[in-house]
Design a binder for these strands. Structure first.
Lengths: 181, 181
DNA sequence: CAGTGCATGTAACAAGTTACATGATTCC
DNA sequence: GGAATCATGTAACTTGTTACATGCACTG
């Protein structure tokens, strides 16, 4: 069975507060970036589909603002569907990590090229780690609602997985540098 | 620009030795499972496409065997294309982790339900870790070719990322259990 | 008055899964 | 002779990205 996860990402965000498509994009970019992404071509059509299905409604804010900002809110039906999804266990986690695939096939290019690639990736991860730390700090400070504990936990996941990856890269670079190939 | 990564996964595996579609499926399942997957509906059409493009060739093994096993080998052109891909840096790594998404939206179901989910995931990861260790051990023992260093490194990645995830799950479960929500 | 950010959207395409079909061979 | 596994494949479908188009509002 296929399931449109975009639908549930949107629904979940709308449980926090009513949002426009643009708001959703921003939230994903600012807070979920390290474990979620959406493209425009998926986001806007899905918003329309969810409206048709009555899982969300377009708030009538024409009076309060002149901006072309379509603000959506989740409906009771939407909440029910979100909870159904939350309780489903599918585990189908499809892993496709192109970086590891390239490393696995490393013998097809020179050792030095691979080492350079690994170093670049490592730097990128260090940068990411910094961002995740900032997100986590911000969340800890602003912590007030019952939701924030979950946000902090996911932020910590980003931090600890980035840390583990960085130290693996470090080790791997050393191993390759020492290796006689 | 979109790129068909399946193509390169196939090419890479064929640099090890000539393989049939079924062999490729098995290798992915046995050795790459924790960072790569392919479905039948993607694999077989891609094999045909690669043959048309002359990146791989169907070996004529009709004489040596009566099995309907189509054995493919990579061509020089295929090797070149693989190397081009290996040297490309795209970084586009699209993260979409449904488990984290569900945790992020945790406040929509009871704390206890979330804890149960986390515990199940943790058990699953412990199981996976065991498998990765077996793969790594096997690789270390059979280590002979210049390729095996790369295989061992990727296996280690699986191990260290699983370990980091497990300890994060452990911590998160404790934090949630203590939390008053 | 140009540049940046706000804000929404679509058409064309690529990528990938699912569920099925088919038949041979091997092992118990 | 039945089950499992070997082995290849396709049709229908979903999911997702890319690249574009449009226009307003604010700021320096």
């Amino acid at each position: 069975m296929k399931q449109n996860t975009t639908k549930y990402a949107i629904l979940g965000l709308l449980t926090i507060e009513p949002l426009s498509g643009y708001d959703i994009k921003k939230m994903i970019k600012n807070s979920l970036a390290y474990f979620w992404s959406e493209s425009n071509g998926q986001l806007y059509p899905t918003l329309n589909q969810l409206t048709k299905d009555n899982w969300i409604v377009l708030l009538d804010n024409a009076a309060t603002s002149k901006k072309p900002s379509n603000c959506y809110a989740i409906t009771d039906l939407g909440r029910q569907e979100l909870q159904k999804w939350m309780r489903r266990e599918e585990e189908k986690s499809v892993h496709r990590d192109e970086n590891l695939l390239k490393l696995f096939f490393g013998s097809n290019i020179s050792k030095e090229e691979t080492i350079l690639r690994l170093k670049k990736r490592k730097l990128k991860l260090i940068e990411n780690l910094k961002k995740y730390r900032e997100i986590a700090n911000k969340l800890e400070k602003e912590s007030h609602s019952s939701q924030s504990i979950y946000w902090i936990l996911t932020a910590n996941y980003g931090i600890s997985s980035a840390r583990a990856a960085i130290s693996w890269y470090q080790k791997s670079i050393l191993i390759l540098e020492k290796a006689k190939i």
